[in-house]
Each structure stands twice: as C-alpha cells, then as structure tokens.
Design a protein around this nucleic acid. Structure first.
Length: 270
DNA sequence: AACTCATGCGAAT
DNA sequence: TTCGCCTGAGTTT
C-alpha cells in the first residue's frame, strides 16, 4: 500500500508515539541486528518522510533509513508486546523499562532498513525530486525536469527523480483527472499543465494522508452516498478499472515505465 | 491448499 | 530489459 501518502502518515503517527523517547531497537529476524546495535537505547529525535523514504534521526547522530518497497509493513502494538512471529526485520520498543506508555512497532518485508549517517541520507535525497507533501518542495524543479524530457509523462511521474512520492495508482489517477494520455512526451506538456499536475499530486497525496488510503474519486462520480465508505475497487477512476466511470468506454491497461498503466482512451486522447 | 498478483526499486544481464 | 526481493489479499483448485 505504500505511495508517498502512506510514508507521511507513518512518520506522523509513529512520530507522535516515539519522538523524544529512548527506544530499544532490535532485529528478531537478525538481518538488521548489527545496525540495530548502533542505536539500541538511544533517543529517537524525529521521524522524517521524504517521498517514499523514512529517516530516523537518533540522538547518537545516526540516521536510520527505511524503504517499504512493495511488501514492507509496520504493525503497532500498544500495551502488549507479542512474541516475535516470522521475519520481523526491526522492532522498536518504547516505555517498557521506564513504565511510560508502552509501544512496540514491528517492521517486516522492507526493501531497505539500515542505520547510516546524515551524509548517506543526503545522498538518497540527491536522487529524489521535490516531494509535493513537503513544505520545502520546489515545484519548478519538477516542472522543468519533466518539461525537458521526451520520455512519456506516464513514465516520468513514476520516476522519483522528477518528483518524489507518486506511485502506480496516483500516476494513473492524476493523468485521468487532467485528460492527459500517458504516452504524451513530457516536453509536449506546457508548464501551466505541469503546474496543475503538481497541484493535483499534492491534493491527492494530502487526501491520502488524511484518509490513510488512496481515494481519488468524488463520491458523486461513483454514486456512493454520503456516510457510506467507498470500497477500494471504487476509490479510483481508472486504476484497475474495466470501464470508465465518466464515459463508460473500456479502460486500456498498457505497460509504461515497467508497470501497468491504466487510462481511458476516450477521456485521455493521444 | 495452491496460486497469482500487487500502491517499488535496485542489481544483474 | 529482466530478475529478485519476500508479504498478504484475493482468487482458483
């Protein structure tokens, strides 16, 4: 489930539980054990989100890095500390020793889970474009990079060097909302259009953080009455759909940027 | 119970 | 361009 909204939501939720506290850091599975020792017992100053990356700022001066990839998941336990089951890469424990509000957070299946230096964090950021969810984001950087490329816009939106945090669902949904064909080259999109795409990225991601899930549709467009939860399969306009919500024509699923890209050939003409 | 596929991405080829 | 990571929900047997 991880596009940028998930990462920012985790940083916020876990930060509220853990920031400013001394933590036990371990790796029941073992693969993170050596790195865990470096920060075990240290105070976590804050958890930072950037695109799809999480950074853990420790009082030791170390900076932890987590990337969930496709499979990574956190699980939060309050009050109880369950026996580790299966491959838990990282376990963070707060409050067990000092009797304050106990919290245990387990991480399994991440692509990356390491402890490094501020310089290593900087080198990761150097490979990322601006993140629409961050205050320090400079949209012009993304707009000019995309506007200079001949690659398809559908591939550029997935490229984290263009902008950080968009994944396969938001890419399809953003392009649908603006009626843009995913194969249109970046340099055939005028700056005004790219500016609007940026705004849409920001508002869609922000809505994702609020809801803690991806919902890009207006409920009136999909005929879900107020007060009723929008099912996952109806929370998008084109992603994994067979039929266009707007015009009823068949949705096309093509491979762009190594991922299946959904679009409506009628609402998003070439 | 087995199998498929996925909201990701870096390494190998 | 393909492979591998390595979890879990949903589908098929």
């Amino acid at each position: 489930m991880p596009e940028g909204h998930t990462i920012h939501r985790i940083a916020r939720d876990h930060g509220r539980l853990l920031n400013g506290r001394a933590l036990r850091v371990s790796s029941p599975q073992g693969r993170f054990a050596t790195d865990a020792e470096r920060v075990d017992g240290a105070m976590l100053e804050r958890i930072e989100a950037y695109g799809k990356h999480l950074f853990y700022w420790w009082s030791t001066g170390d900076v932890g890095h987590v990337h969930l990839g496709l499979f990574g998941k956190y699980r939060v336990h309050r009050d109880d500390v369950p026996e580790p089951r299966g491959a838990i890469r990282m376990r963070l424990i707060a409050g067990m020793a000092d009797g304050t509000d106990p919290v245990t957070i387990d991480l399994r299946g991440p692509t990356a889970c390491t402890v490094g230096s501020p310089e290593e964090r900087a080198s990761i950021l150097a490979r990322l474009g601006p993140d629409p969810l961050r205050r320090d984001a400079d949209p012009e950087q993304a707009i000019s990079r995309i506007g200079r490329s001949r690659r398809p816009i559908g591939a550029l939106l997935l490229d984290q060097q263009m902008l950080a945090g968009i994944g396969n669902v938001y890419r399809a949904e953003m392009l649908f909302v603006h009626g843009i064909h995913p194969e249109r080259p970046g340099n055939r999109c005028d700056p005004a259009m790219l500016g609007e795409l940026w705004s849409t990225a920001r508002s869609m991601l922000a809505a994702g953080v609020r809801a803690n899930r991806i919902v890009t549709v207006d409920r009136d467009d999909v005929g879900i009455p107020r007060g009723k939860r929008i099912p996952r399969a109806e929370a998008t306009y084109v992603y994994r759909r067979d039929v266009c919500v707007r015009c009823g024509d068949a949705i096309a699923a093509t491979e762009i940027g190594n991922r299946t890209c959904y679009h409506c050939p009628t609402c998003q003409p070439a």
